[in-house]
Simulated scan of single mutants.
Amino acid sequence: MSRPRPSQAAVEQRRQEILRHVAEHGETRIDVLAERFDVSLMTMHRDLDHLAGRHLLRKVRGRAVAFPALTMETATRFREGSNVDVKEALCAAVAERITPGATLLMDDSSTLFPLAEMVRGVRNLTVVTNSVGLAQRLGAAKELSVTLLGGRFHGEFNSCTGPDVVRALGRIHADLALMSATAVHGGRLFHPLQEYAEVKEAMLDSAGRAVLLADHSKFGKTATYAYGTAARYEEVVTDTGTPGAEADALRALGVTVTQVTAGEAPRS
């Protein structure tokens, strides 16, 4: 008797588990993956072709090979559920600075997702973002005006980049930009994808003030594309788990560093 055909949700869940396994081990033989996940070799090839087509791993001579961890971490589905309590504390530390009538720029960082709930009651607030997920979270609030920057859509990141986004930002002046970073090392900022680094730079150019929110997991890392230093931000809000040397490097750039602990008041 043949097995019942799995639902699309079950297939997607299996593919996520395959990706996590490959990411944890660096690389794995395809036949070993098929055995581990109890599927045929043909089905495993199909799953891996799907993941490779989304640029989440590579297939090389009978093996599945992981991309650098930072690239995978950039994908929304793999970062949205990490360090949620810390992200909530970071957002709470800046929420009170968002005033009625302001124009706010927010990038596609999942770090900012908890802020959507916190600003819904701010009247006449205009939010400009390249994040579809953030726009959806904000869209239900009648008090807010939400502008979604359209361009090249990246389904895995649920956000837009490209020249259209950069040009649109050039026509906007925001009171405040709230952003995060994929990697910070010695005060320098990095991103594994050039298009996203370019959007972050354009957001900084379009804002009167900018605050960087980054939890401890972002520090001490680098990625392919550098896009300046934290000196372009008036403040960096992080948590107490951030290494002291990294916090000192930020202060050496003249940046205010505010550190929070989940559930507690921030301290500078």
Rank of each mutant, 00 (worst) to 15 (best):
L115K: 11
R123N: 12
D175L: 01
H154G: 12
P114F: 05
F37I: 05
E24G: 01
M203C: 10
L41Q: 13
T242W: 06
R58D: 13
H25Q: 15
R97S: 12
L56G: 01
E195D: 14
A265P: 06
G187C: 04
A69V: 12
K142L: 13
H45M: 09
A52Y: 04
T76C: 11
L148E: 03
G81N: 14
T256Y: 05
L148S: 07
T99C: 12
V236S: 07
L56P: 03
R232S: 15
A249E: 02
A197W: 07
T74E: 13
G170C: 04
V132L: 15
T229D: 04
E80M: 13
S145Q: 15
V132G: 01
R46N: 13
A230I: 10
A69F: 07
K218F: 00
T103S: 10
A66V: 07
D49S: 14
S2Q: 13
H21Y: 12
L178T: 00
R251G: 02
H50S: 12
R209K: 11
D175V: 04
L176K: 02
I172K: 08
V84Q: 11
R251F: 03
H216W: 07
E156R: 11
D164I: 09
I30C: 04
M72W: 12
P68Y: 03
R63V: 09
T74K: 06
T256A: 13
D205F: 03
A177K: 00
R5I: 10
A69E: 13
R61G: 10
A202G: 02
T261L: 12
D49N: 14
V165M: 03
T229F: 03
S180T: 04
Q136N: 14
V184K: 09
G150H: 10
V184W: 05
R63I: 07
G170D: 02
E88H: 15
M1H: 08
C91S: 05
G155Y: 01
A93D: 06
S40L: 04
R20D: 13
R46Q: 11
K59R: 15
D239G: 08
L144H: 08
V86I: 15
V260Q: 01
L178I: 06
G208I: 06
V237D: 03
A247T: 15
S2G: 02
M106C: 15
V237Q: 08
V122Q: 10
V94W: 05
A34T: 09
V128K: 11
K221L: 13
G151A: 06
M72L: 15
G121F: 00
H55R: 13
F67K: 12
V184N: 07
G101M: 00
A9G: 07
R123W: 08
